[in-house]
Every structure is written in structure tokens, then in C-alpha cells.
Design a binder for these strands. Sequence first.
DNA 1: CAGAACTCTGAGAGCGGTTACTCATCTTCT
DNA 2: AGAAGATGAGTAACCGCTCTCAGAGTTCTG
Lengths: 344, 344
Amino acid sequence: MSNRSQSSERTRASAPAERATIGLVAKTAGVSRATVSRVMNGNPRVAPELAQRVRLAAEELGYAPSPVARSLALGRTGIIAMLVPDLGNPMFQGVLHGLTDAAAKENYRLLVADSNENLHEEPVLATEARRRCDGLVLCAPRMPDEQLLELTPQLEPFVLINRELPETSTPSLTIDFAAGIRDLVTHLLSLGHRRLAYLAGPDTSASNRARVRALHKAAQDTFELVEVACGATFADGHAVADQLTDLNVTAVVAYNDLVAFGTLSRLHELGINVPSQMSIVGFDDIPFVRYTTPPLTTASVPMDQLGPQAWQRLWALMNGEAPEKNVRVRPRLEVRGSTGPAPR
Amino acid sequence: MSNRSQSSERTRASAPAERATIGLVAKTAGVSRATVSRVMNGNPRVAPELAQRVRLAAEELGYAPSPVARSLALGRTGIIAMLVPDLGNPMFQGVLHGLTDAAAKENYRLLVADSNENLHEEPVLATEARRRCDGLVLCAPRMPDEQLLELTPQLEPFVLINRELPETSTPSLTIDFAAGIRDLVTHLLSLGHRRLAYLAGPDTSASNRARVRALHKAAQDTFELVEVACGATFADGHAVADQLTDLNVTAVVAYNDLVAFGTLSRLHELGINVPSQMSIVGFDDIPFVRYTTPPLTTASVPMDQLGPQAWQRLWALMNGEAPEKNVRVRPRLEVRGSTGPAPR
DNA sequence: CAGAACTCTGAGAGCGGTTACTCATCTTCT
DNA sequence: AGAAGATGAGTAACCGCTCTCAGAGTTCTG
């Protein structure tokens, strides 16, 4: 009653077809709701003749069970969600894709929520998304540990991507940034570079900190390191390139591929040849950097592994099993055309 | 009862915290469930002292209302969904972003479903997504008209992006591909090009057909047109470029920016200079094509307008009002470095 | 042929909320 | 002081579906 009035008011002009409910189908077919439910769920212990009648009625009324009601009754939704900080970053597409496919095999669907890098909204968004489904894959590299820790009970079961949460058993899939950086640096050193610039990402970002740490460690009297504040986007990389000319460096390590690409573009505009005058490396190996001019040398993160891995763990959690242990994927050095011997 | 057994079985080992329900909060606070509900919804007609007690109990139990139950009772979810064929295409990011923001103003959240170009799954995915929320923004350029028409009753209220559906009143936001193509062609003609190749997109795609039509119409004894089957991705564009050398064309119109970018890359590898030996244009103006080498001349689609427009219409539909009339946004010619005078 | 063992189907109790109604209790006005 | 009006909280129905349980009808057994 309560809702009837509201819903009919709400749908005064729209909602051409008041949706059929299980009750209506039952009445139409002359059976009980239980039977309709059984038929709709493929329960085989229904007399074929009855089942047929129900199917007919359902068809005729255009009936389809309400997922919301179903979720409430079942206590599960058949959905998992993934929260990403920025859909614009192609990095996530690989994960999303893998996750969608892996989940699909178990008849789960994936919904994506994008926090648009809105730090403030992230906790709310995560909690809300989580409660509407059965599990969450969370990628929130900027959220402070304490906050995440506090949220943990509301988010479970969930899996972290790209960060770890100390003191908890939350499964997490991380990337070995340090190893990636080491490989890149080793590569550059072997080409004779001795003074490098690092185009730093957002300093709230855990992954940026990891890179910085690895760089400083590698630098240790092997080479000189100049850190330049930059950001995480094309535009950031593009804008920062002008500063590079004064730094007297021969190679640039960018926070990620997006930045590297922006920088590459600007260097080209400035008439600085890559790689003969300046080498540049990115990180991630997002899909199109193999097509840049020149193609970008980068640390290739096997994104396609992350999706299935995340699903496997989430699935375990949702079934009350112990998830496999955390993995830290190791990027593979992908040498392309943007790096070359240091100019004399 | 029914579920209790199932749910406790399911969560045997996980689910550390059985979620508090409204009933538990009510008992703890010594009030009725109705009162708890009122407090949680900020109903002011509750005695402050009682309200406080309820809030305390809720806090203590870590209670948060179940969105699923709430949705069922209210008959609305506070969510809209958008279905995209391929999240990997940056085209959609603009729409998504605008939609998220517009919806947020009315306290609605956006969830994204990605069909991964899986034509087969699309109808199911769309229907399912739709039924879990209050409205849908659908971008399914490849779905046949008949199928979409058939789905219409189940999807309402919804808004179409990038296509129209004849014979219905479904609001749709489209892009004037013909105008975009005309502008691009005019630009190329003014540079002296007389023999163009078109790198065709998927031929199931409505937008590809629109482009082809516009091209043929423009061609009319003004220039020669060679149509080459290609696709919609970087890789497609990259792969097709080798064929171009034999075609004796001086300019290339790509299905979209992704293809153009792939082609550009391959041409560079082949040592064919753009634009002095070959001009190339894309379509969409996705974020990074201004950073390619050379930057891509393209038809810039104002994606940021689509999100808010879509929301406005969806909102109207959801409230039983008549949505504003359809709009067809007109791309703006964005001349950059990838086009130049036709070589002699 | 009675009773056991099955099969089907329907009744009804949830799932976790919301809200129309009802009923005290407290004001306020005549 | 007594009646009408407010106000605040509780009761119970309902959202649409699932599932246990029990009863009716069948088929087997001995």
C-alpha cells in the first residue's frame, strides 16, 4: 500500500508497463507463487504441463523476476563491484577486462564505480557499492591507511589492488614497482646514462613513493637523480617537459606511461630528438604506447593477470575459504625505441 | 528461517561480522523499527533524546541500512547505469564523467557495465543492469534495431547515446557524423587532396555506416574514394597501414582516432612522413591525440556535453516528465599537424 | 489391498527496510 | 476544567521473491 501510492505517483506519465510480479504470473497461470519461482529457477521437479503454463503466462505478461527482491531474499546479488580512481587511465582496463571474464565464468557480473580521483567521495562510494553487491575489488591508491583500515569491516569481503594494508589479512595484489624501476634504471645505465630525471607522480600516491624509494636506492653513487614534481596525466607530462632542457639530464624516468607520452610529445615539439638527444621511459605499458613515435620503452605490468587473480581471491572469500596468498607481480622490461645511448 | 540456514552455511568461515539489521538496532535502543527507520532517514519528528539513543545503538552495532532492502521497499535504488561497448575507448570517459557528475547532483550514483564488445551478451547485460537500478544510459552501436526495439519495454526509462531508434520516443543523443566527415573532407580537399582512403570501422556499426554514407555523398565527382576494411582499434589501424602504400592515395580518413593513431604509428615505421607524404585524420578527438606525433587532425566530438544532456533526459523520464528533444551534437574540426598539402 | 515411499504443489514465514494508520500523551483554547 | 488539536511512537502491512514444511495424490511393496 505504502509504495503503491508512491510508485503510481512517480510513474504517472512514464513507466508505460507496470511490471508484472511473481504474484500476477501465479494468478494468471493458476498456480502458487512458489511454483512460479521454481519454474523461473529451472527447478526440475515441476510437472511439465504446469511449467509450460507458467512459462506461457510469464511470457505473455513480459515477466522477469526482480533482481532486487531476489537479492534480498537470497542474501546475495550475483554482482561484484570494482572501484577505480580514474577510468581514464588505461591501466585499469586490463584488470577490468580480466575481472569481468573471470567473474562471468561463475555467473557473476561486474559493475564499475569511478571515483574520478575524488578522494573525499571514495569511502562513501566504496561502502555503498560494496553493500549493493557481494564483493569488492578496491583500487584506491591514495586513501590513507588508517581510513582504509577503518573501512575494512564494511568492505569485506574485498580485495586490494595496487596496495597492501598492513596488519590485516585482506588479500592484495601488488606490483613490484621497485623491481620495475631497477630494470629500467639498469637499462638506462647500460646505455651510458648517468644523470636522470624522475617525473614524480602525485605524492599522495603510494606507488609513487615506492618508485621514488627504489630510485634513490639505485642512485647510490651510481648516477645522479633529479626529481621533478609532475603528476599522472598526459597534460602533466606535456607541461613538465620544458623544465627538462635546463636539467642537463640525458634520460627521463616518468611516473607512468601517460606522463611519458605527454613528455615525449612536448620534446618532439621542442625539437629534441628521442632517443638520440634524450631517452625516456614510462611505466605500465598501457595498450597504445607501443604505437607512439618512437614506441615507448617501459616496464610492462601484466595487467591481464590481475583480474583473474583478484577474482580467485574474492571468490574464495565469498565462500568462506582462505584466499591464496598475496602476489606481487613483477613488471617486465619492454625495450622499445624511446631509449638509446646517452649522447656524449 | 529459509535463508538463515543457507546464509550461515555460506558464510561459515568468512563474514566475520554478521551485519546488524534494523531490528537489532531497534531492540538495542529499545524502540520500534519504525523509529529507527525515521532516525536513519533524518525524519525530524522524533524526540531528540530517542533519536540520540538510536544513533548510539546504530553506531555501536556498526549498523548501516541495507541498500537492497531499501531499494525494494522504496521501489527505487538511487542508481543509474550506463552500458558501454568498450571501456577501453576513451570516447566514453567524457560521457561517463559528465554523467557521474550530473547524476551526483541529484544524489544518484552511476554504475558502469562493460559489454566488452560482446554482442551476444549485450541484451542480457543491459536488461540486468537496468533492472537493478532506476534508469539506463545505453550505448550499443552494434545492436540491431529490431533487437533494441524488442528490448525497449524492459529498458525503460533509458536514453540512447550515439544512435537513434526509429518509431520510438526514446530520447537519444547523437553525433552528427555526416557534418564531421564533411568538415574533414572539405579540409582535405582544400589542401589539394583528390584521392582519399577511408579506413572503415566495423560494418555492423551504425556510426560507420553514417560515415560511409557521408563520404560517398561528398565524393560525388569531387574526389576519389577508396574504402578499406579496417576496424576500431589501435591494432586494426596499425595493421591496415601497409595496404595504404599501394592505393596511391594522399590522405586517409580513419574510422576513429584510435585507428588513425595506429595507422600513424605504422606509417612512421614505414618511413612515410605525415603529413608531407600522407595526410591523416581521425574522428572523436579523444584526450591524447593532441599529443601524437604529429598531433592528429580530427573531428572533435564534445563528449562533455553528452553526459549532462543524458542525465537531464533520464531524470525527466524517471519523474514522468517529457524529456527535452533529442540533440545531435556537431563535431568541430580540429586542425592539427597530421594534415598538410597534398604531395605533387 | 493397506501402508510405505515418493512426487508435486501450496501455504506461509522470512529477507530488511518503509510508511499509512492508530493510539496515547501533551498542549492549548474556550 | 473539558474538548479539540498536535505530536510522537508503535503496529502491521507491504515491496517481490525464495524456501522450508506439510499435505495431497501416486506408485511401490509385501
